[in-house]
Amino acid sequence: MGKTVVSWSTVHGQSGTTANTVALASMFGLDYPFRSLLTHTQLTFSTLESLYSKGQRAKGFEDAGMEALERLVKSKLLKPDAVSDYTDTIYKNRLDLLFGNQQERDAEDSDHILRSILQVAKNYYDVLWIDAHSGVHNATTRTLLKDADLVLVNLPQNRYVIERFISGQDFPEELKDKPYIILISMYDESSAYSLKNIKRSNKIKAPIFAIPYETGFKDAANQSAVTQYFHRLIQVKKGEPSYSLIHSVRDVNKAILKQLGYSAMEDDGL
């Protein structure tokens, strides 16, 4: 049975949640011999897909993605090994992308469909990376947080937002007794509110990492060229512009690997 990693934030539009999820899942797929599925909690097309491709799914949605799997769920014909047939391959045998459809769905119906698809997918993939809605007002988000094997809490380098989460004001009930990792997004290494100072001024028990802002990654995202960006940087060298980002992402992935219990398997070459 695969493991579920839910990427989430307390605030909307400030925390780089989608970008972080894409970066981590992409590098994880390139570095480790595990089969991963990347998706999101919107059944409609989202910005996540646009980072990898320039919307080539404008036609033919009914033949792949959520729309095709939705029909299988409703007819009770969805099997674990069939899920990958309806995805886009990002890195062969390592990372698949499950994209949304073009039509809005009833919220309750969408929740049921998504949960059904993910439950079946866990029987085929080793890791499910899920880009979740921010906050806790969405029922699907609450369910995903509760059921996740690991939650990535994405926060901006903003003292107010970070302290509200650490103090418990924005700490959801679903995260109690749940393993989670804090990611400080679009991190500015020259800021006075550094990772060291964040740790010093807050009682943080969970692992905390910084994901630095990197112009090359931003450009790749705007050009829908994220697949090529990470593939090109597998052997990135110290001193290159992208080194800090790739190094940070790999550090987070090592922590994720350990939290999911896969580190021993990877060390054995499995």
Rank of each mutant, 00 (worst) to 15 (best):
V11Q: 02
G13L: 03
T17K: 11
T18F: 04
V22Y: 01
M27L: 15
M27A: 15
S36P: 05
T41L: 12
T41R: 02
T44N: 12
T44C: 08
S46N: 13
T47Q: 13
S53Q: 08
Q56S: 13
R57W: 10
A58H: 09
F61K: 09
E62W: 15
A68T: 09
L72W: 05
L78Q: 02
L78D: 01
L78C: 06
K79E: 15
K79L: 15
S84D: 11
S84H: 08
D85V: 12
N93T: 15
G100E: 08
D106S: 13
D106L: 14
D109H: 15
S110Y: 05
S110W: 04
H112V: 15
I113N: 08
L114A: 10
Q119E: 15
N123Q: 13
Y125M: 09
V127T: 07
V127F: 06
I130C: 04
I130T: 03
A132S: 13
H133L: 07
G135A: 07
T140H: 07
T141M: 05
R142W: 01
T143Y: 10
T143P: 00
L144F: 02
K146M: 02
K146T: 10
D147G: 01
D147Y: 02
L150H: 04
P156K: 08
V161G: 06
V161S: 10
I166H: 02
G168Q: 05
Q169Y: 07
D170A: 03
F171L: 02
P172N: 05
E173Y: 03
E174N: 00
E174S: 00
K176P: 00
K178R: 10
P179T: 11
Y180G: 02
Y180M: 06
D188Y: 03
E189G: 10
E189C: 10
A192W: 09
Y193K: 02
Y193V: 06
S194V: 11
R200M: 06
N202Q: 07
K203E: 09
K203L: 06
K205Q: 11
F209W: 05
I211F: 05
I211S: 03
Y213C: 08
E214S: 13
A220K: 02
Q223E: 14
V226R: 00
Q228P: 00
Q228W: 04
F230M: 06
F230S: 01
H231R: 13
R232E: 14
L233H: 06
I234L: 12
K238E: 13
E240R: 12
E240P: 06
E240G: 07
S242I: 02
I246E: 01
H247I: 07
A255L: 05
G261W: 04
G261C: 08
G269C: 11
